[in-house]
């Protein structure tokens, strides 16, 4: 359950911050982000190997063996972040008995939100859709990884161990993996830089940098604007008396609505 945290900013202005991501989610995102950047930096020159700048860039890293080693290392970090994500999900659900994060799953409402948003963008409606914990765009980004990682990691490991791969699969698996790896990488890169960066960092009200995935917190004002439905629910289920012994429960990603205690913590 999202937790209301009142923090004091450096300017000593009290600003309401609402916790949105717990430390594990932030680490998972950080691992994925950093490994993604390194994978792009070391993989992209291979795709455009005839460009002079690629040759200059690879030489800067210390040659093709150096970029390859970094690419391999970053690939393992990315795979580790996914295992961490899956493992953490199982742990929270099976051991901590937290509710399964059902809110990340796409629903018919997302299709409706998508059309409402397109109508808003094109001027057919005065207002955009109101989102719950995750907007359709956030869900799209999240689930795209469930398609992208098996493709990228699967094809990547085939290219990393081509002889072992052909001991199991037919020989064509290697050229197929190369095509998949190359094209899917372009897709991921373009999507992240065009869509993800635009809507999470450059859109009005967020520009220039959205720090919530790094701090875990979102200002109340922005939360109301971006996730009004979740915010309303958070406020309505909140008890007037906060329970001091209750620990703030980080979410993964969001539990279903269960009327329960909502903690409010004061930090000075």
């Amino acid at each position: 359950m999202a937790t209301l945290v009142r923090t004091v900013t450096l300017k000593k202005q009290a600003e309401d911050q609402i916790a949105r991501f717990d430390i594990h989610q932030r680490i998972q995102h950080g691992m994925m982000m950093i490994s993604f950047i390194f994978l792009v930096l070391t993989g992209f020159p291979l795709k455009f190997s005839s460009a002079g700048i690629s040759q200059w860039w690879v030489a800067l890293w210390g040659g093709i063996e150096a970029t390859r080693a970094v690419h391999y290392a970053a690939a393992w970090v990315m795979v580790a972040s996914c295992l961490y994500h899956g493992g953490y999900l199982l742990y929270t659900v099976l051991v901590l008995k937290r509710p399964f994060p059902i809110r990340i799953f796409p629903t018919p409402r997302d299709a409706r939100d998508f059309f409402l948003e397109i109508m808003y963008f094109t001027g057919l409606r005065k207002e955009g859709p109101h989102f719950d914990r995750f907007s359709w765009r956030e869900k799209f980004d999240y689930w795209a990884i469930f398609w992208g990682i098996p493709i990228m990691a699967g094809s990547g490991f085939i290219l990393m161990f081509p002889v072992a791969a052909t001991n199991i699969f037919p020989g064509w698996i290697v050229p197929v993996a190369l095509i998949a790896h190359s094209d899917e990488a372009m897709l991921a890169l373009t999507w992240i830089f065009m869509v993800h960066i635009f809507f999470t960092h450059l859109a009005p009200g967020i520009f220039p940098l959205n720090k919530s995935m790094f701090t875990g917190k979102v200002s109340r004002e922005r939360y109301i604007r971006e996730h009004p439905l979740e915010y309303e629910r958070m406020v309505s289920v909140r008890r007037p008396e906060p329970e001091p012994e209750a620990e703030p429960v980080p979410e993964f990603p969001a539990p279903p609505v269960t009327p329960g205690p909502e903690e409010e913590k004061e930090t000075e």
Binding site: E117, F121, I179, D183, L187, F199
Partner: peptide, 30 residues
């Protein structure tokens, strides 16, 4: 199989990126 993989992925790339470009463009206009 490599030929069909190529067709599949390049079409998929064009469709998804086209979709992404469209919503970003519409959002920028709005």
């Amino acid at each position: 199989v490599a030929y069909y993989t190529e067709i599949f992925f390049s079409s998929f790339l064009v469709i998804v990126i086209g979709f992404g470009a469209l919503i970003v463009l519409l959002a920028i206009v709005r």
